[in-house]
Amino acid sequence: MPFPDEVSPVTVVEYRPQWPLEFERLAEQLREALGDHALGIDHVGSTSVPGMPAKDCLDVQVRVRSVDEGRAVPLLGAIGFRCRPEPWNRTEVSSGQKCRKLVFAPPVGDRRCNVHLREDTSPNARYALLFRDYLRADETARLAWGTFKLRLARSVPDLLDNGQIKAPATDVLMTAAERWATATGWPYA
């Protein structure tokens, strides 16, 4: 659930070339706040894929040794980031494994983003990178996924309903991504 300051209908826009630059600024801010707790900071999600329509909300993955709420919440809270309280923002299933995570919203009034903390070598961290790299590499998949997201946002602008419809479609996309990863020898970063 979004915080009250984030509530708005789902709107998907055409790719914006400033997204990578905005990610870099945000990543630097997170590096400074998290120090050596952050093993890697990745631009993930649709805004990380050149040419991909997306919600104007950056998805950032911070890879850590261990998802430690007692350490991460104060570090990010010190710069205004808010830990999302819902259970689905604390665990997710990826490759059949239950994986810990934490998701943070930006400070009130800052650039819209979701900051996902995941364990460095976990299946869910791999999933986020595979999603990005597959759509960067496969133009047909990228165009189809972008068209799907644009049409879905127009038809179902409610965030929760949109997500419920998008989830099974994402499973289909990721089945193709796994085949691509095997066929190309995609190296998990």
Rank of each mutant, 00 (worst) to 15 (best):
E14I: 04
V60K: 04
P107L: 06
P53L: 13
A78F: 08
Q29E: 13
V7M: 09
L39W: 05
R25L: 11
Y134A: 03
A128W: 03
R100F: 09
D36E: 15
P106V: 11
D133P: 02
L129G: 00
F81W: 15
N89T: 15
L117M: 15
C113M: 09
T47L: 06
P4K: 12
R31V: 10
P20E: 01
R100V: 03
L102P: 12
C99N: 14
D120P: 00
V103H: 11
P50E: 13
R82P: 12
Q18G: 02
P9Q: 08
Y127N: 10
V60T: 15
D110A: 13
D59H: 13
D110P: 04
A72S: 09
E24R: 12
T121Y: 06
I79Q: 03
R90L: 04
P106I: 05
A72M: 11
E6Q: 08
V108T: 10
D120E: 15
T121K: 11
P50M: 05
L30C: 15
R84C: 08
V49S: 01
Q97C: 08
D68K: 02
V49R: 02
M52R: 04
L58E: 02
D138Y: 00
G51A: 11
P85G: 11
V115G: 03
E139K: 02
L135E: 07
V60W: 12
V64D: 06
L130R: 05
C57K: 11
Q29L: 14
V10W: 12
L102D: 06
E119K: 00
P20A: 08
T140P: 01
Q29P: 03
